[in-house]
Protein backbone atom coordinates (compact mmCIF):
# COMPACT_ATOMS: atom_id res chain seq x y z
CA UNK A 1 0.00 0.00 0.00
CA UNK A 2 1.11 3.53 -0.81
CA UNK A 3 2.26 5.47 2.26
CA UNK A 4 0.55 8.64 3.34
CA UNK A 5 2.57 11.10 5.35
CA UNK A 6 2.13 14.67 4.12
CA UNK A 7 0.20 15.66 1.02
CA UNK A 8 0.24 19.18 -0.28
CA UNK A 9 -2.01 19.73 -3.25
CA UNK A 10 -4.64 21.51 -5.24
CA UNK A 11 -8.14 21.35 -3.76
CA UNK A 12 -11.29 20.48 -5.75
CA UNK A 13 -14.68 21.33 -4.20
CA UNK A 14 -17.57 18.88 -4.62
CA UNK A 15 -20.33 20.78 -2.91
CA UNK A 16 -22.78 17.95 -2.30
CA UNK A 17 -24.00 15.95 0.66
CA UNK A 18 -24.58 12.18 0.63
CA UNK A 19 -22.33 11.50 -2.37
CA UNK A 20 -22.91 7.77 -2.80
CA UNK A 21 -20.63 5.08 -4.13
CA UNK A 22 -22.89 4.56 -7.16
CA UNK A 23 -21.91 8.12 -8.12
CA UNK A 24 -18.25 7.70 -7.29
CA UNK A 25 -18.00 4.68 -9.57
CA UNK A 26 -21.14 3.45 -11.36
CA UNK A 27 -21.83 -0.27 -11.31
CA UNK A 28 -21.10 -1.07 -14.94
CA UNK A 29 -17.42 -0.49 -14.16
CA UNK A 30 -17.46 -3.01 -11.30
CA UNK A 31 -17.41 -5.83 -13.79
CA UNK A 32 -13.65 -5.63 -13.99
CA UNK A 33 -11.79 -8.35 -12.17
CA UNK A 34 -8.79 -6.08 -11.60
CA UNK A 35 -7.94 -3.46 -9.01
CA UNK A 36 -6.96 -0.81 -11.50
CA UNK A 37 -8.50 1.02 -14.38
CA UNK A 38 -11.27 2.82 -12.46
CA UNK A 39 -9.81 6.36 -12.38
CA UNK A 40 -11.00 7.36 -15.85
CA UNK A 41 -14.58 6.59 -14.79
CA UNK A 42 -14.59 8.30 -11.40
CA UNK A 43 -17.93 10.18 -11.11
CA UNK A 44 -18.70 8.96 -14.63
CA UNK A 45 -22.35 10.01 -14.72
CA UNK A 46 -21.47 13.55 -13.67
CA UNK A 47 -18.31 13.90 -15.72
CA UNK A 48 -19.72 12.86 -19.06
CA UNK A 49 -22.97 13.62 -20.83
CA UNK A 50 -23.41 10.17 -22.34
CA UNK A 51 -23.76 6.80 -20.67
CA UNK A 52 -20.38 5.23 -20.00
CA UNK A 53 -19.45 1.59 -20.41
CA UNK A 54 -16.25 -0.29 -19.63
CA UNK A 55 -13.45 -0.20 -22.13
CA UNK A 56 -14.68 2.94 -23.87
CA UNK A 57 -12.39 5.61 -25.32
CA UNK A 58 -13.16 8.40 -22.85
CA UNK A 59 -11.36 10.95 -25.01
CA UNK A 60 -14.13 10.63 -27.59
CA UNK A 61 -16.96 11.21 -25.08
CA UNK A 62 -18.92 14.45 -24.55
CA UNK A 63 -17.66 16.04 -21.33
CA UNK A 64 -20.09 17.76 -18.95
CA UNK A 65 -18.69 21.31 -18.75
CA UNK A 66 -20.88 22.10 -15.73
CA UNK A 67 -19.30 19.44 -13.50
CA UNK A 68 -16.77 20.90 -11.15
CA UNK A 69 -13.97 18.37 -11.76
CA UNK A 70 -14.04 19.32 -15.42
CA UNK A 71 -13.23 22.97 -14.72
CA UNK A 72 -9.72 23.75 -15.97
CA UNK A 73 -8.79 25.31 -12.61
CA UNK A 74 -9.24 22.01 -10.77
CA UNK A 75 -7.14 19.82 -13.06
CA UNK A 76 -4.47 17.96 -11.17
CA UNK A 77 -6.28 18.25 -7.82
CA UNK A 78 -5.21 15.79 -5.13
CA UNK A 79 -7.48 16.95 -2.31
CA UNK A 80 -11.25 16.57 -2.59
CA UNK A 81 -13.57 18.44 -0.28
CA UNK A 82 -17.21 17.42 0.04
CA UNK A 83 -20.19 17.58 2.36
CA UNK A 84 -21.59 15.24 4.99
CA UNK A 85 -21.98 11.46 4.69
CA UNK A 86 -19.56 11.11 1.77
CA UNK A 87 -19.29 7.57 0.37
CA UNK A 88 -22.66 6.26 1.53
CA UNK A 89 -24.16 3.23 -0.14
CA UNK A 90 -22.40 0.10 -1.23
CA UNK A 91 -19.25 -1.52 0.11
CA UNK A 92 -17.48 -1.37 -3.26
CA UNK A 93 -13.80 -0.74 -2.71
CA UNK A 94 -13.75 0.33 -6.33
CA UNK A 95 -14.76 3.76 -4.96
CA UNK A 96 -11.46 4.50 -3.20
CA UNK A 97 -9.61 2.74 -6.04
CA UNK A 98 -11.19 5.17 -8.51
CA UNK A 99 -10.50 8.23 -6.35
CA UNK A 100 -6.90 7.21 -5.85
CA UNK A 101 -6.26 6.42 -9.46
CA UNK A 102 -7.77 9.74 -10.53
CA UNK A 103 -5.22 11.42 -8.30
CA UNK A 104 -7.02 12.13 -5.03
CA UNK A 105 -4.94 11.24 -2.00
CA UNK A 106 -7.34 12.62 0.57
CA UNK A 107 -11.02 13.47 0.92
CA UNK A 108 -12.18 16.01 3.49
CA UNK A 109 -15.79 16.11 4.70
CA UNK A 110 -17.76 16.63 7.88
CA UNK A 111 -18.71 12.94 7.98
CA UNK A 112 -18.25 9.72 6.01
CA UNK A 113 -20.17 6.49 5.63
CA UNK A 114 -18.51 3.77 7.73
CA UNK A 115 -17.60 1.18 5.09
CA UNK A 116 -16.22 3.72 2.62
CA UNK A 117 -14.21 5.35 5.41
CA UNK A 118 -12.70 2.01 6.29
CA UNK A 119 -11.97 1.09 2.67
CA UNK A 120 -10.00 4.29 2.11
CA UNK A 121 -7.39 3.37 4.70
CA UNK A 122 -6.70 0.08 2.91
CA UNK A 123 -5.74 1.98 -0.20
CA UNK A 124 -3.54 4.85 0.83
CA UNK A 125 -6.39 7.36 0.70
CA UNK A 126 -6.88 9.44 3.83
CA UNK A 127 -10.46 10.43 4.73
CA UNK A 128 -10.34 13.49 6.99
CA UNK A 129 -13.25 14.51 9.19
CA UNK A 130 -13.40 18.22 9.98
CA UNK A 131 -16.14 20.24 11.63
CA UNK A 132 -18.91 21.51 9.37
CA UNK A 133 -17.74 25.12 9.90
CA UNK A 134 -14.15 24.20 9.02
CA UNK A 135 -15.24 22.46 5.84
CA UNK A 136 -17.20 25.61 5.05
CA UNK A 137 -14.05 27.70 5.35
CA UNK A 138 -12.25 25.40 2.92
CA UNK A 139 -15.11 25.63 0.44
CA UNK A 140 -15.15 29.42 0.63
CA UNK A 141 -11.39 29.82 0.30
CA UNK A 142 -11.23 27.29 -2.50
CA UNK A 143 -13.88 29.05 -4.58
CA UNK A 144 -12.36 32.46 -3.94
CA UNK A 145 -8.78 31.55 -4.82
CA UNK A 146 -7.77 29.88 -8.04
CA UNK A 147 -4.93 27.44 -7.46
CA UNK A 148 -5.95 26.96 -3.81
CA UNK A 149 -3.66 24.43 -2.17
CA UNK A 150 -3.68 22.94 1.31
CA UNK A 151 -1.46 20.55 3.21
CA UNK A 152 -2.76 17.45 4.94
CA UNK A 153 -0.28 16.20 7.51
CA UNK A 154 -1.16 12.78 8.88
CA UNK A 155 1.78 12.65 11.27
CA UNK A 156 0.63 15.82 13.05
CA UNK A 157 -3.07 15.24 12.30
CA UNK A 158 -3.50 18.68 10.80
CA UNK A 159 -4.99 20.31 7.71
CA UNK A 160 -2.93 23.42 7.05
CA UNK A 161 -4.36 26.30 5.04
CA UNK A 162 -2.25 28.62 2.84
CA UNK A 163 -2.23 31.28 5.58
CA UNK A 164 -0.54 28.79 7.88
CA UNK A 165 -3.57 28.22 10.10
CA UNK A 166 -4.36 24.62 10.83
CA UNK A 167 -7.44 22.53 11.59
CA UNK A 168 -6.83 19.43 13.69
CA UNK A 169 -8.45 16.09 13.00
CA UNK A 170 -8.67 12.75 14.76
CA UNK A 171 -7.70 9.39 13.33
CA UNK A 172 -7.27 6.16 15.24
CA UNK A 173 -3.77 5.05 16.02
CA UNK A 174 -3.82 1.72 14.26
CA UNK A 175 -5.03 3.12 10.97
CA UNK A 176 -2.65 6.04 11.18
CA UNK A 177 0.26 3.75 11.85
CA UNK A 178 -0.58 1.51 8.86
CA UNK A 179 -1.04 4.45 6.53
CA UNK A 180 2.10 6.30 7.65
CA UNK A 181 4.15 3.19 7.04
CA UNK A 182 2.28 1.72 4.10
CA UNK A 183 1.76 -1.53 6.02
CA UNK A 184 -0.08 -4.61 4.80
CA UNK A 185 -2.51 -5.36 7.59
CA UNK A 186 -2.96 -9.01 6.62
CA UNK A 187 0.69 -9.52 7.45
CA UNK A 188 0.16 -7.77 10.78
CA UNK A 189 -2.85 -9.91 11.65
CA UNK A 190 -1.00 -13.10 10.77
CA UNK A 191 1.48 -12.04 13.42
CA UNK A 192 -1.32 -13.00 15.83
CA UNK A 193 -1.83 -16.45 14.33
CA UNK A 194 -1.34 -18.13 17.71
CA UNK A 195 -4.07 -16.01 19.26
CA UNK A 196 -6.41 -16.85 16.41
CA UNK A 197 -5.73 -20.58 16.81
CA UNK A 198 -6.25 -20.38 20.56
CA UNK A 199 -9.55 -18.57 20.01
CA UNK A 200 -10.67 -21.22 17.54
CA UNK A 201 -9.84 -24.05 19.90
CA UNK A 202 -12.04 -22.50 22.58
CA UNK A 203 -14.83 -21.55 20.19
CA UNK A 204 -14.93 -25.13 18.84
CA UNK A 205 -15.80 -26.30 22.33
CA UNK A 206 -18.39 -23.61 22.97
CA UNK A 207 -20.01 -23.43 19.53
CA UNK A 208 -19.05 -26.60 17.62
CA UNK A 209 -21.83 -26.13 15.02
CA UNK A 210 -20.05 -23.09 13.65
CA UNK A 211 -17.14 -25.28 12.60
CA UNK A 212 -19.19 -27.94 10.84
CA UNK A 213 -17.68 -29.11 7.54
CA UNK A 214 -19.64 -28.00 4.49
CA UNK A 215 -18.93 -31.14 2.50
Amino acid sequence: MEKFTVVKGLVAPLDRANVDTDQIIPKQFLKSIRRTGFGPNLFDEWRYLDEGYPGQDNAARPVNPAFVLNFPRYQGASVLIARQNFGCGSSREHAPWALQEYGFRTVIASSFADIFFNNCFKNGVLPVILKEAEVDVLFQECEANEGYQITVDLERKKVIRPNGEAFSFEVDDFRRHCLLNGLDDIGLTLGFADDIRAFEAKAKQARPWVFQALR
Partner: peptide, 20 residues
Protein backbone atom coordinates in the same frame (compact mmCIF):
# COMPACT_ATOMS: atom_id res chain seq x y z
CA UNK B 1 -21.86 -6.38 8.04
CA UNK B 2 -20.54 -5.48 4.64
CA UNK B 3 -16.81 -5.18 3.97
CA UNK B 4 -14.60 -4.01 1.13
CA UNK B 5 -12.49 -6.24 -1.09
CA UNK B 6 -9.29 -5.78 0.94
CA UNK B 7 -11.20 -7.05 3.94
CA UNK B 8 -12.59 -9.99 1.97
CA UNK B 9 -8.97 -10.93 1.36
CA UNK B 10 -8.14 -10.27 5.00
CA UNK B 11 -10.90 -12.63 6.17
CA UNK B 12 -9.92 -15.29 3.63
CA UNK B 13 -6.31 -15.14 4.84
CA UNK B 14 -6.79 -14.72 8.59
CA UNK B 15 -10.45 -15.46 9.48
CA UNK B 16 -10.40 -12.15 11.32
CA UNK B 17 -11.09 -8.49 10.82
CA UNK B 18 -9.47 -5.51 12.47
CA UNK B 19 -12.34 -3.59 14.02
CA UNK B 20 -13.21 -0.80 16.36
Amino acid sequence: HGIGTSEVEHVLATQCLVQK
